[in-house]
Write a protein that binds this DNA or RNA. Structure first.
Lengths: 292, 292
DNA sequence: TTTAATATCTGACTAATGTCAGAAAAGTTG
DNA sequence: CAACTTTTCTGACATTAGTCAGATATTAAA
């Protein structure tokens, strides 16, 4: 390549900052200075600590105070002293503030949609590229959180998981993986567990645990979004689910998988899983177990 | 996918703007206000029209004038009236200005390198994703410019072209495509022509024309970078090179290609090229001609 | 040649942002 | 309790960015 990677990143940066007006949250266009709006969008409806906002935005306390007064005068927020520490103040959105925030959100949404439309036939690829970049830039902040097995994020991960199996495992067809029964209890406490890994607000990985009638539990649906691979996330998910299984009192774990999923199998072997005798049918062709 | 494309773009935007300090050209950190630096980086060492800078940055003429005075006071630029139109002024970097610009460049370069390092094993993919996004955002500004056949940009395109052939054409091995002889005249005026398509400063496509001993000319090395496909660039390159051939007085054009390159062949057919009898050997297996 | 348009420059002005010092109130530590 | 720290608030001030109305020199059009 003609340009070295650094030059290419800087070219990317020029392109992105040139679009800054279209890309950003659209602070402008509603007759309010940028600083004020930056504060406004950080105020949660249920109330946010003023010091937290100041810290996040790196503002001087005097300036922050003025922004708050200005938003208060407009009737967009209310402030009250923190009952726990009466030096501190808490800012809360008023209904008018929520409406104003929604208006900013709508502008940002419209601009984003227009930008995607500009990519034309390659919009999907562009968004995938954005996922990758955002995930890599956010890599330090991959959060593992428990999830309800019927939640939209679990369903999204499920679809990614099935797409992966269909693409890589010979003989795996979508019909073999019906959408999981809503309301089923086996992947939900107290019987089982489900976890989702988040990068910002994008779910990028999952893993579940369910009890087995024969005793012990089974690890299911380990999946990592393409944009989040190569960062040890699968290992973190497995560590998490094994830890959960241990605290639930299980001593033996099982899983089934397919030999086409070589990285997953390598991870299992590297973390103490060993081959066991088959306990399910195709498309599984590898069965492993671990004693906790 | 859980998030719709717009939400994913906005997530991308959050990630990128959070890195703004690291991503931008590092205007800050050398004790000079942003506006001044924006002007400074637009001044070319050989001299730039002041009106051009003002237009690109969207500045008021009064403000622009003050920025110029400030940079002049610092000894970073010199201004002179344009001999062609003595109302206009031309700004030129002084040696001190070039040094200062180099310092800004070094800061930006270091920050970009650090950011790429953070992507770890997926740095290559991240940079490719950035290429795609930057090219799509810049899609309106794809410039076709003549190039010297020995220039680094043509060499970069050549490598992309060969990589493409090796990947897609059965039997095409890198040895079949030695690096073109430097100093050869057939792809350079007055005998031939070479064009490069630029997206900002990344070469994203090329095409060449060379004379044939049998009369007429041959179109060679049509290639478009992956990030720039789907935007009609190949068609623009072909239109350009055919136009050049016409003004050079050629009336017949030829080219050889391979049936694996189906989009290219479809383009040729759609623009009036027809099959002709073979005039070269493997890996070519399709030969086409066009009468101007 | 007269008139109009263009490019730059200067001065006056405003808005937005940021900095600093200190006051007031509340909490923490000895 | 006294001494100190932390959080917020206010006033004074500086810097940056941007707008507007001429003034001046030059070029283009009638």
């Amino acid at each position: 390549m003609f340009l070295d990677p650094v030059a290419r990143l800087r070219r990317f940066n020029r392109a992105v900052t040139r679009e800054a007006g279209a890309l950003d949250l659209s602070f402008l266009g509603r007759g309010r200075p940028l600083g004020t709006v930056r504060v406004l969008v950080m105020v949660r409806p249920e109330g946010t600590d003023v010091a937290l906002i100041r810290d996040r935005l790196g503002l001087d306390s005097g300036l922050m105070s003025r922004f708050l007064r200005s938003l208060e005068r407009e009737g967009l927020i209310e402030t009250a002293t923190d009952p726990a520490d009466r030096r501190r103040r808490i800012a809360r959105l008023t209904p008018a503030g929520e409406a104003e925030l929604a208006a900013y959100d709508a502008i940002g949404h419209a601009r984003a949609a227009r930008l995607i439309a500009r990519a034309g036939s390659r919009a999907d690829e562009m968004v995938a590229a954005m996922d990758l970049i955002a995930t890599l830039l956010n890599r330090a902040q991959l959060d593992l959180r428990p999830a309800d097995p019927d939640s939209p994020e679990i369903l999204a991960c499920w679809r990614g998981y099935v797409a992966e199996l269909v693409a890589r495992v010979p003989g795996a067809r979508p019909e073999l993986f019906p959408v999981p029964d809503p309301g089923a209890d086996s992947y939900r406490p107290p019987h089982g567990r489900s976890f989702v890994a988040w990068s910002d607000d994008l779910p990028v990985g999952c893993v579940s645990l369910r009890p087995l009638a024969s005793g012990g539990a089974e690890v299911k649906r380990l999946w990592v979004h393409d944009s989040a691979r190569g960062q040890g996330l699968a290992r973190r998910l497995m560590t998490q689910i094994e830890e959960e299984a241990r605290t639930m009192g299980h001593t033996t774990l099982k899983l089934d998988t397919n030999s086409a999923l070589s990285e997953a199998i390598a991870l299992y072997r590297a973390t103490g899983w060993t081959d066991i005798s088959p306990y399910t049918g195709p498309p599984a062709d590898v069965w492993m177990g671990k004693t906790l």
